[in-house]
């Protein structure tokens, strides 16, 4: 049976890529340091494969066709899109995929368990995956199974559903007949807004939400988190705050208090860094 090699939650703000290309400006120093610390922790954990929970930003899944939860299964997976190369200077990347564990999560002849995932045999990663991978696995050598969650285009899954996804992923990973070590990565935001009047204000759009959210993760307080993450509360925190829900999946998968739980203050508000030692 496969073994969990830890769970890590990080930001993916694409503007970081150019800003931190050389010596990071003072307010981003801690963000760069935390990425470096997590990179070392992941190297130490020595995973054979990364299951990566993130939300595609209307590239592969859009208002044309939106998947609520989708598994990407392919031998090789390309990353970024022309508009992201232009806007953020992201490099085109390629990472190995891992169809074996992708099928263990998704199902093979029939869908495997409590989740009727959509799937893609040609997943393509946008900045939500590419930015964390560039910082955490810079040689892009570890196979990745992207799990897309819709946190951007309502109707969204409820907070409870994100916790159920975490429990399911753990069961599916642990039931996978393999000796490989599986690390789970997740990305999202704390309170965050883009495209609205409060964007790029230089501080968090909702420090109260951030304090609560970091506390839920730190304490493994899933009941409180689910109660606190209603659609209206997340929207009030900022129109992209729904992406916090991805961290509830990691917290539920880990089923324990986090080892690291922090919102690192910078020009983009509080950037989330979470880690769990999975028993």
């Amino acid at each position: 049976m496969a073994e969990l090699a830890g769970a890590f939650g990080v930001p993916h703000t694409p503007l970081l890529w150019r800003l931190m290309a050389e010596e990071p400006p003072p307010d981003l120093r801690v963000v760069a340091d935390e990425f470096a610390r997590f990179r070392a922790l992941i190297e130490e954990a020595g995973p054979d494969v990364i299951v990566f929970v993130a939300s595609d930003h209307f590239h592969q899944y859009s208002h044309r066709n939106m998947a609520t939860f989708a598994v990407g299964k392919a031998d090789v997976i390309a990353g970024t899109y022309p508009n992201e190369e232009a806007s953020f200077g992201l490099p085109r990347i390629q990472v190995p995929g891992h169809p074996g564990i992708a099928r263990a999560i998704l199902g093979r002849e029939t869908l495997g368990g409590r989740f009727d995932f959509a799937f893609s045999d040609e997943p393509r990663l946008d900045h939500a995956y590419v930015v964390p991978l560039l910082y955490l696995v810079p040689d892009l050598s570890i196979p990745v199974v992207p799990i897309h969650t819709n946190t951007n285009a309502p109707p969204l899954p409820t907070a409870r559903r994100f916790t159920e996804l975490g429990v399911y992923l753990r069961e599916a990973i642990e039931a996978w007949p393999s000796s490989e070590r599986v690390l789970v990565l997740g990305t999202g935001h704390l309170a965050y807004e883009l495209g609205g009047p409060r964007q790029f204000s230089g501080e968090s759009t909702d420090p109260d939400f951030d304090r609560s959210a970091v506390g839920w993760i730190r304490d493994g307080a899933l009941t409180e988190a689910v109660e606190g993450c209603t659609f209206d509360r997340l929207l009030a925190a900022g129109n992209l705050s729904f992406q916090f829900l991805n961290f509830l999946t990691l917290a539920a998968l880990s089923g324990t208090r986090a080892t690291t739980a922090e919102g690192v203050g910078c020009r983009f508000g509080n950037e989330p860094f979470f880690s769990w030692d999975t028993p």
Partner: peptide, 11 residues
């Protein structure tokens, strides 16, 4: 959608 509007407007 504010995100899509921002991206298009920026481009």
């Amino acid at each position: 959608h504010p995100f899509l509007l921002l991206q298009a407007a920026r481009s």
